[in-house]
Design a protein around this nucleic acid. Structure first.
Lengths: 227, 227
DNA sequence: TCAAAAGTGTTGAGCGTACACCCATGC
DNA sequence: GCATGGGTGTACGCTCAACACTTTTGA
């Protein structure tokens, strides 16, 4: 049955988002081979016959960027007939959220170079990767409002100021400080720590942790996170 | 490069939702071949080498159920290594919304039989199709709240009562009639027609149409649909 | 002492929610 | 005339949005 059909190739591609003090960024890889040799591209590659799609995405991420143990979620599957000039290739795209201060710009393990690019300044990419990136950014902007995934972009311990700036950068809008703090603290999803920031040239802010366990409890009871 | 890897098979599977006076339903197909011969399954099949994923989903829908020209959206891609007992197969799942009164229960064009099943009464399906169905139902329940996709389940001209019952069936909760009407009419997305229901054993209700054009205009201005 | 960010409450407006009765039609 | 769904308004509580000054710390 299936052997009577020519099979398409299957790849995974990853849009890895990171946040620093300036910008929301993604990781790009410089291609060392044709097609699109020298062009920037999303990290990714072919799915092995004995690994799941998510395992393939994690493997490519580790091999090409050194990124490991991060939030990873399937984005969309791109299957236009001519998206790869060589042959028919279907790409299952994933997006990842990493804490950029924890994952400093790492070189790829092979010869290709990896770098962080601001989402406002993405060059022309290989294949249909610009489109994949657009879908990923749109998904992040939509999802960050009603699921507490934004915490994945911050260090484990963070200040309310960092949290607010994270939302301001992703959503590209200013947020009122007092209203934001009232709302986020009112959800009771943050554990207030007995620690404050160190080495800052102004009043040190209190540190908080996201309470994953409590979120799951509330969610089961019908609570909906919303910014 | 890619030729050094064994390729997985790629299929599409479709969860086709329809609504009638009783229930939210999906179409299932009785399998005529091994594996899972005689078991019910989602309509679907292998993606041809020269057709896009969406085209494959539309073709399978037409061939197996006679359904055409309906709302169709990609759901998720299922790629566990052992989801097909024969060989490695990756399935790109889609979900469709059809107006059940317009698409009466059609037999499949080939020997296999197709039938509507209430979502509350889905049998044990072939492959991982129960899981695909679960994801589809969850997606529909989530998405119907903040995108006006529910109209796809109704005839072009519908009453406010039909619209409300559609939401009540999908969301499995009662809605206050006066508040619902106030809210939905307040959005100004419905065109009130100069027509009323025919042949009903009670006061005939006014008919409305969803104003697709107006929705797109409002959406561009930042309007968010929400039930 | 200056710069830079942290921290903190109140008010008004708009929105969501709860709630009960009369109307029109076919049988 | 009865059964069935269609159609309608108000009042209350809560949430959201707007808004400015004092505190702490390091340089």
């Amino acid at each position: 049955m299936s052997t009577t059909y020519k099979k398409p190739g299957v790849t995974v591609d990853c849009v890895v988002f990171g946040l620093d003090e300036e910008d929301l960024k993604i990781i790009l890889i410089e291609r060392g081979l044709e097609p699109f040799k020298g062009r920037w591209a999303l990290p990714g590659g072919f799915v092995h016959i004995d690994e799941s799609l998510e395992a393939a995405a994690m493997r490519e991420l580790r091999e090409e960027t050194g990124v490991e143990n991060v939030f990873l979620e399937q984005l969309y599957t791109f299957g236009d007939v001519d998206r790869d000039p060589r042959e028919r290739v279907i790409s299952v795209a994933y997006y990842a959220l990493v804490n950029l201060s924890g994952h400093k710009i790492k070189a790829a393990t092979d010869a290709r170079s990896a770098a962080w690019f601001s989402v406002d300044d993405i060059p022309k990419l290989a294949f249909d990767h610009n489109r994949i990136f657009d879908v990923a950014l749109k998904r992040l902007r939509g999802k960050v409002r009603y699921e507490p995934i934004g915490f994945e972009l911050l260090p484990e311990k963070f200040t309310l100021g960092q949290l607010q700036r994270m939302y301001e950068k992703i959503l590209e809008q200013d947020i009122d400080k007092r209203n934001f703090r009232k709302k986020i603290l009112g959800m009771e999803l943050l554990k207030e720590l007995d620690e404050v920031q160190m080495d800052v040239a102004h009043r040190a802010a209190r540190l908080y942790k996201f309470d994953e366990r409590k979120y799951r409890q509330l969610k089961e009871k019908g609570f909906n996170f919303e910014i």
